[in-house]
Design a protein around this nucleic acid. Structure first.
Lengths: 234, 234
DNA sequence: ACCACCAAAATGGCATACCATTACATTTCC
DNA sequence: GGAAATGTAATGGTATGCCATTTTGGTGGT
């Protein structure tokens, strides 16, 4: 710690944020636990300034909550909140997929197909690590192909906020087979350039995907709110 | 300015942010104009700290851009960006409307109808001020009825980012008649609890609404990108 | 026991100083 | 005259101190 506490080089905020994020996501800090600004700053050998900014970043990411005059506490993962975010995510991805379907070049779709088959390979090998990574990559790629910067950014934000849940329930892989099938359907619709169908399939897929996390995720599952699953069936 | 330079109390960041926001939105600061942190801080009799935070807030709101080592500059309203944001807004509002249509109580819908007729009254009186205000209120109310906190928050964010455009082109009221008709259609669909139709009508309405702003808004209208208007027509 | 009141500690927010890095303009060298 | 080097100002980022507000735990009065 002697070799770099001296310098004003940039990145301290990120370091602190990453450190805290890691520990929160990996569940080393229990929800509700207090994160005293000054104390933590001393421990991490930084001043209040970067610590404050880091906490604010984590607050926008939904990992901590800033209570007025009571400091920062680790946010608890409310299934309700997560479902709401997941729902918005699915809406955004549906829209993105529709746009992507129109905008993408044939090469883009070919690349998507390639990624899909890579993922399928990982699936067949029961290689969870790469399966999940490629799955994420594909979804992100689809959103990127929408060409809508705001959409991409907002999707990335939500995705980050849901990462914690995604991490916590990393083992729920019952429905791999089903998920793969859904991905196949999405890719088929892409190949046919049927934007509506791509959107619907993706939305459906995401609905089921996140339902899984939500149900198996927590103690009180008063999850049967209203806006769960699809909205089409009113 | 003499009556409140006596600091210590909280809210300096907000004051500064509001001040700058006002001037930017009202077009007193030209796009591209630099906003030197320290200089501005001196002028407004504050230190760098609140000024920095205010600028960061405005940056997230899309009003200023933070260029690395070149300071903050007033963001220019790129028609492209605005259209992209407007598109996402319409997607979110569509989703919100579908949820709202399912979740809303009969009283909620009645209240919506009431607001609608208030707006219609303002329309008949050619009362722009109240028309626009009520129009906003109705849209916000619909989103609020979705019951999805994330959705509400993200919608509010986008709405804020589009406020500038909304303000700049405040006079474009050619299509009042049409817009009113679209609102009637939306309300009718609401009354029948037809979620899909509510969603479609609202999306269509927003598409046309923002198209208006985008076209009349600026110099280079390379607006004929891809993701303008509706996505259904692929 | 209960409530009001007060003091100590924690927190939020602002001001300010310091230093490294980068942009920009000037100078210098070829 | 043009390119490279250099100096200067601006910026970003951090550390730190101060003070107001609020929380909190303890104290005394009834």
């Amino acid at each position: 710690m002697e070799e770099e506490q001296q310098i004003g080089h940039s990145g301290l905020v990120e370091k602190v944020a990453n450190y805290l994020r890691e520990h929160i996501v990996m569940d080393h800090f229990q929800p509700g636990q207090r994160l005293p600004e000054r104390t933590l700053a001393k421990e991490l050998q930084v001043s209040r300034t970067p610590m404050r900014e880091a906490l604010k970043i984590l607050a926008t990411e939904g990992l901590v909550v800033l209570l007025p005059h009571r400091g920062a506490v680790v946010a608890d993962v409310s299934p309700r909140d997560m479902q709401e975010k997941a729902y918005v995510l699915s809406v955004l991805e549906q829209a993105a997929a529709e746009l992507a379907c129109c905008n993408a070049s044939d090469d883009d779709i070919a690349e998507l197909q390639a990624m899909h088959y890579e993922m399928k390979a990982a699936f067949l090998r029961r290689d969870r690590q790469n399966y999940f990574r490629l799955n994420q990559d594909i979804h992100n790629r689809i959103v990127a192909l929408s060409g809508n910067a705001s959409l991409i950014e907002m999707h990335a934000n939500l995705s980050r906020q849901l990462y914690r849940v995604r991490y916590l329930s990393n083992e729920k892989s019952d429905k791999w087979q089903v998920a793969m099938g859904e991905h196949e359907a999405i890719m088929a619709a892409f190949a046919e350039r049927d934007a509506d169908r791509v959107g619907r399939e993706l939305r459906h897929h995401l609905g089921k995907t996140w339902m899984k996390y939500a149900n198996g995720g927590s103690k009180d599952d008063a999850v049967h709110e209203r806006n769960d699953g699809e909205a089409e069936a009113c």
